[in-house]
């Protein structure tokens, strides 16, 4: 039995065959490397055993126990290729039974959306007349968009290799001001058009300045819209120190892991926090899931607001593939909910 090969997935979604013993070894290795890197406790024996139960099965699909269902939120719904964007929202509500839906512009960036806010408002208003479930509006802070030649500020990625660190930092600080203004403008507009909430997705993608811009925008939106839903989803498990010295509320942002990211998001005024842990495509699903759970566990344990972990293409143990296999998606989703007691995905 120990040598029986079981079909499972690699981090790129490809099918592979492993014994239960090999999976157990990957689970142990995944939690070990995560604990060392994030300086958090590794998973315990009962948690590893439960994960092995989930992965050491050839079933096409798996799911949480009855009664353990969680809420799903999204970073945009629909492909925008069939019918209209409102049709996408209705299909997700009426045919896929989504708990919530999210309207988005195909250029998923607040900077780009700023130029078409009146059109987006019109769609939001019509959509709200046609859907019952909560309807958010989402985009990315996308700080890199503010760099030359396309944006207004010098490009810090070209300044840093030249040793012009002060200039690179000044450029990021200037970009933060532009981004905050754009995000608040767009959020004001979409909430004015009836959005239930706004989603700052892939925050921190350009590093600590990107995360700072999102936090400051959240703070501003919260002060102007006390009842608005505000969701923030992270770009990765670790805030890159592209600037290195930026702080929010006295906390240095570079190097923050999910628990500290969540605390700042809650302090800024977010109502839902979405941690993200990137997938290693060369490792198995078991390895990636154990690693992701280990990193995020302290965040969920100390959360004061709902935690909706990013479990999709390339994050949260789900394969980095255009169409992640359902067997892998269901395993990573169930594992996250079972072990972490998440509030949603």
């Amino acid at each position: 039995m120990e040598n029986k090969k079981i079909p499972t997935r690699m981090g790129d979604g490809s099918l592979t065959w492993m014994t239960a013993g090999e999976m157990r070894a990957d689970l142990e290795e995944g939690t070990r490397v995560a604990a060392e890197r994030a300086k958090v406790p590794p998973l315990d024996e009962s948690e590893l055993s439960h994960l092995l139960e989930i992965f050491a099965s050839a079933s096409r699909f798996t799911g949480v126990d009855i009664g353990d269902e969680v809420v799903l939120t999204y970073d945009g719904v629909g492909s925008q290729h069939i019918g209209t964007r409102i049709h996408d929202l209705q299909l997700y509500e009426q045919h896929l039974a989504s708990d919530s839906v999210e309207l988005y512009h195909p250029d998923y960036s607040f900077k780009a959306v700023k130029t078409v806010v009146p059109y987006e408002q019109g769609v939001m208003r019509q959509a709200q007349a046609n859907v019952t479930v909560p309807l958010n509006y989402g985009a990315m802070p996308d700080l890199g968009r503010y760099t030359q030649p396309d944006g207004p500020v010098p490009n810090w990625s070209t300044l840093m290799p030249l040793g012009k660190i002060d200039a690179a930092r000044a450029a990021q600080e200037e970009a933060v001001e532009h981004a905050v203004a754009d995000m608040v403008y767009v959020c004001d507009g979409m909430l004015e058009a009836g959005a239930d909430g706004v989603d700052f997705d892939t925050a921190g993608a350009a590093g600590d300045a990107d995360f700072l811009a999102a936090l400051r925008a959240i703070e501003a939106v919260r002060s102007r819209h006390p009842d608005a839903g505000i969701q923030i989803g992270m770009a990765s498990e670790f805030v890159l120190g592209m600037h290195g010295t930026l702080e929010y509320d006295g906390v240095r942002l570079a190097g923050l892991w999910p628990r500290e990211q969540m605390k700042l998001a809650a302090k800024a005024g977010a109502t839902i926090f979405g941690p993200a842990v990137n997938v290693n495509t060369g490792k198995s699903g078991a390895w990636n899931v154990a690693r992701a759970i280990t990193i995020v566990k302290p965040c969920v344990q100390e959360a004061e607001i709902p935690v909706h972990m990013n479990v999709g293409m390339g994050v949260g143990g789900t394969p980095m593939a255009p169409w992640p296999p359902a067997d892998a998606v269901s395993r990573s989703s169930r594992a996250m909910v079972d072990i972490l007691r998440l509030d949603g995905l």
Binding site: V71, S98, V133, P134, G197, A266, A303, P306
Partner: peptide
Amino acid sequence: AGDLVARMQITRGMRL
């Protein structure tokens, strides 16, 4: 009732 539970999370920040 997922949409109803979602509303309490989104608007009120209630944990699950």
